[in-house]
Design a protein around this nucleic acid. Structure first.
Length: 428
RNA sequence: GGCUAGUUACCCAAGUGGCCAAAGGGAACUGACUGUAAAUCAGCUGGCUCAGCCUUCGGGGGUUCGAAUCCCUCACUAGCCA
């Protein structure tokens, strides 16, 4: 799915209606005003991403796709990477963040910038822009910050923000550093308003307090009302947070979550959630999605909606080629075919999607489970074998001390933990 | 600055000198069933050269044959006082 092929659904009377239908608006400033602004003319808007990890994840993808939809509707996106806010830390409801070093944050800024840029068009009439808030905060002295910006913030209001009050009410408390975060984010919006006439900030609904911090500041300093819009936190039908696979975040970077694993993640979305996911994470039209919804009702076991979702999102985030690779690998590795009957070429291309390790015959299976990342420790690996959950080339391993002794065509082997966690071993 | 309470494994939380690698719950993982589902049931969850050994109960030091448990100290958190 290249940028050129993406479009909003023209069957909606107005762009705003599509956003609502896709469930992308959890909360916003005056809806009528915002709808009017989005349905007519061009406005400049931004979303901030803090470098808290070397890759963006699915939660960020929601934002990136909303950005892209707004761009397709003719608006101009600014991607803000939080080089300075990432140094301070957005207060989490649970506990204080561990500060990362400046070098690490700078490195992550680079990675996230590159990653986020893939989803937007940097050419044309309303090209995207990429900014780093370190550009306007780094040179700011503490005194200037307190005099020029801090003066506009009332502590009472800051304390009332949910992110802060939650922490004050917890036994962890909050540091002055994280308490100040909302001021920095508010200042970003003001700066972007001044530099680029940016009049809309988007974010996740958990960011609402930080979003309002910016609009309040602009209102105070510039006597101008700006817009805010927050996307809902995506949750599964069972109420759990969406975007975790085996307890780990699903990353957009292929190094952290392979295209195969990424595809599998989407393929495994529950029936109850799949239509909502299609609305949020794909550019499929309303009529296409409604047709898939009907399929979920009539023939849930075929999982056509899940297949469409997995194909679309994997193509979008990685590439159509990567998606096809993941589909092929899924077919080959999920039981339809006997592994031993697979041709060498099919087998090797399927395995290329999996985490892999080189090994010689005679290595212990338990150790290979660890080396491939299928298990966290040798103890855990032994446990998995004892529980009957480990397979080499689809044959159950029963002995905890079993050795690697059997390869398929192409001198490779398939190691499996449980039903669907796979890795490749290549004979060295 | 003072006083009081607290810091236990992924999370919550019990344990107050040996029976503690540490109850219970949640969550994850594995198995059966199934649609590579959901629900349900069962198992399982520090590490290792695994009938044994090693490291863990905020950090460091000490008492003791023996400490998650007692003492000192440092850090952090909460509440109260100044």
């Amino acid at each position: 799915m290249s940028l050129a092929n993406q479009s909003n659904d023209s069957s909606f009377p107005a762009f705003w209606e599509e956003l609502k239908w896709r469930g992308l608006i959890a909360i916003s400033t005056d809806e009528a005003e915002l709808a009017k602004a989005l349905n007519s003319g061009k406005l400049t808007f931004y979303i901030g991403f803090d470098p808290t990890a070397p890759s963006l994840h699915l939660g960020n993808l929601v934002q990136l796709l909303v950005m892209r939809r707004l761009q397709l509707a003719g608006h101009q996106p600014i991607v803000l990477i939080g080089g300075s806010t990432g140094l301070v830390g957005d207060p989490r409801p649970t506990a204080e963040r561990q500060l990362n070093t400046k070098e690490t944050v700078a490195e992550w800024v680079e990675k996230l910038s590159k990653q986020a840029s893939k989803f937007l068009d940097f050419s044309g009439k309303n090209p995207a822009m990429l900014v780093n808030n370190l550009d306007w905060t780094e040179s700011l002295s503490a005194i200037d910050f307190l005099r020029e910006i801090g003066k506009n913030f009332r502590v009472g209001k800051m304390l009332a923000k949910e992110a802060v009050s939650a922490r004050l009410n917890s036994e962890h408390g909050i540091s002055y550093t994280e308490f100040s975060y909302q001021i920095l984010q508010g200042y970003d919006f003001l700066e972007l308003y001044r530099r680029h006439n940016c009049t809309l900030q988007l974010g996740g609904s958990d960011q609402w307090g930080n979003l309002t911090s910016g609009s309040d500041l602009i209102h105070k300093v510039e006597a101008k009302s700006v817009h805010l819009m927050a996307t809902p936190l995506i949750t599964n039908s069972d109420g759990k947070k969406f975007g975790k696979s085996e307890g780990n975040a699903v990353w957009l970077d292929a190094e952290h979550t392979s295209p195969y694993a990424f595809y599998q993640f989407w393929l495994n979305v529950e029936d109850a959630d799949v239509i909502d996911r299609l609305k949020v994470f794909t550019f499929l039209s309303k009529s296409d999605i409604e047709a898939l919804a009907e399929k979920v009702r009539s023939e849930p076991q075929l999982r056509e909606a899940q297949r469409a979702l997995a194909l679309e999102v994997t193509s979008l985030v990685h590439s159509p080629e990567a998606a096809q690779g993941a589909i092929q690998a899924s077919k080959a590795l999920f039981g339809q075919a006997e592994l031993s009957e697979l041709g060498e070429a099919d087998l090797l291309s399927s395995l290329s999607e999996l985490p892999s390790v080189k090994s010689a015959k005679g290595a212990s299976i338990a150790q290979l489970l660890v080396d491939t990342g299928l298990e966290a420790s040798v103890s855990a690996a032994r446990r998995a074998i004892k529980e009957g959950g480990v397979y080499l080339n689809n044959e159950k391993i029963t002995d905890e001390g079993a050795l690697f002794d059997q390869v398929l065509a192409g001198n490779c082997a398939v190691l499996r933990r449980g039903k669907k966690t796979l890795a490749a071993i290549y004979l060295s």
